[in-house]
């Protein structure tokens, strides 16, 4: 039903000059075929690569590189067994490292930036504009300008190759970003609440801690999720700063070893990919509605 209404509306605009009933009906059907055709094509393009990874993940490596690909080709769950049992690289260790590093970065990012996000949202203090501008400018830092000094710092602290070192490095991106995002979410909490809290005798910090923070909990969750994803998928720093030992790698570095010059284990890579992507996709779909507003909003209001 709703399809017809939409098509009718667009058809009405186009055929205003000669609105005969027959033409309008024909156009609406054509328009709706075009509409659904375009969307089906686009959806197919969007889904196919991922679907193909899923298909490939069940094939043995030798069949995965067969010159005549088929949907099912000696498909088993052997790849998954191999990957999880660590027969092809220490997958579980990579997974653990990724969770630890991304989790710690997120925790530090959200924890450190929450108070500042609130201060920037509520108080008009000298230096506020400069602070906001700094956060914005750091968003456009190419990692190349920081990679050498950070390498230098980690080397001096003896943290090169350590997960903790990478957490420190990720704070350079997560802290400014979280501040911008959280500020946006604090802005959405009405200031009347602050005033009511102050009237009831709470200190400014009490207002923040007891009233505003609990109210901004969804915002905190979204911010946390987003910075988690950023750290989870980061490649450059992880490739440069983690040691070459197999069990210190993160997933984004570890998975690269499946397909190097003298190794082409596409079946195993696909299985590992599915294992990595599945939880991410599930969580993404749960929170994606909240992602967009905060993201652009945080960037717009400098």
């Amino acid at each position: 039903m709703s399809v017809d209404a939409a098509a009718l509306r667009s058809a009405r605009g186009e055929t205003r000059a000669a609105p005969t009933a027959a033409r309008r009906g024909q156009r609406s059907r054509l328009a709706s075929i075009g509409l659904h055709g375009a969307l089906v094509t686009a959806s197919a393009v969007a889904v196919f690569p991922i679907l193909w990874v899923l298909v490939t993940s069940f094939k043995p490596d030798t069949r995965a590189v067969s010159p005549t690909p088929r949907l099912l080709d000696e498909s088993t769950v052997d790849n998954y067994v191999d990957v999880l049992s660590g027969a092809r690289g220490d997958f579980l260790a990579w997974f653990g490292n990724s969770v630890t590093i991304a989790g710690l970065s997120t925790l530090v990012g959200v924890f450190v930036s929450a108070t500042t996000g609130y201060a920037v949202s509520r108080f008009r203090f000298p230096g506020r504009r400069g602070l906001m501008l700094t956060f914005l400018v750091t968003q456009m830092f190419p990692f190349a300008v920081l990679i050498v000094p950070l390498h230098n710092i980690l080397l001096a602290l003896g943290l090169l190759g350590q997960p903790l070192g990478l957490v420190l490095v990720y704070c350079t991106t997560t802290v400014p970003f979280c501040t911008l995002m959280l500020r946006e979410h604090f802005d959405a909490v009405p200031t009347d609440i602050d005033e009511a809290g102050r009237v009831d005798g709470l200190s400014p910090f009490g207002v923040f801690w007891r009233l505003v923070l609990p109210l901004a909990r969804p915002g905190l969750a979204v911010t946390a999720f987003y910075s988690f994803l950023t750290a989870w998928g980061e490649v450059a720093f992880a490739s440069a700063f983690l040691s070459v030992a197999d069990d210190s790698k993160t997933l984004s570095v570890g998975l690269q070893v499946f397909v190097q010059q003298n190794r082409a284990e596409w079946g195993h890579l696909a299985a590992a990919s599915v294992l990595v992507a599945l939880p991410a996709v599930v969580v993404f779909y749960l929170v994606q509605r909240f992602l967009v507003g905060g993201l652009t909003g945080g960037a717009v209001k400098g």
């Binding site: 690569p49 991922i50 696909a270």
Partner: peptide, 10 residues
């Protein structure tokens, strides 16, 4: 939704 490094391998 899919982590970008996974899609790149795909």
């Amino acid at each position: 939704a899919v982590p970008p490094f996974i899609s790149v391998f795909a």
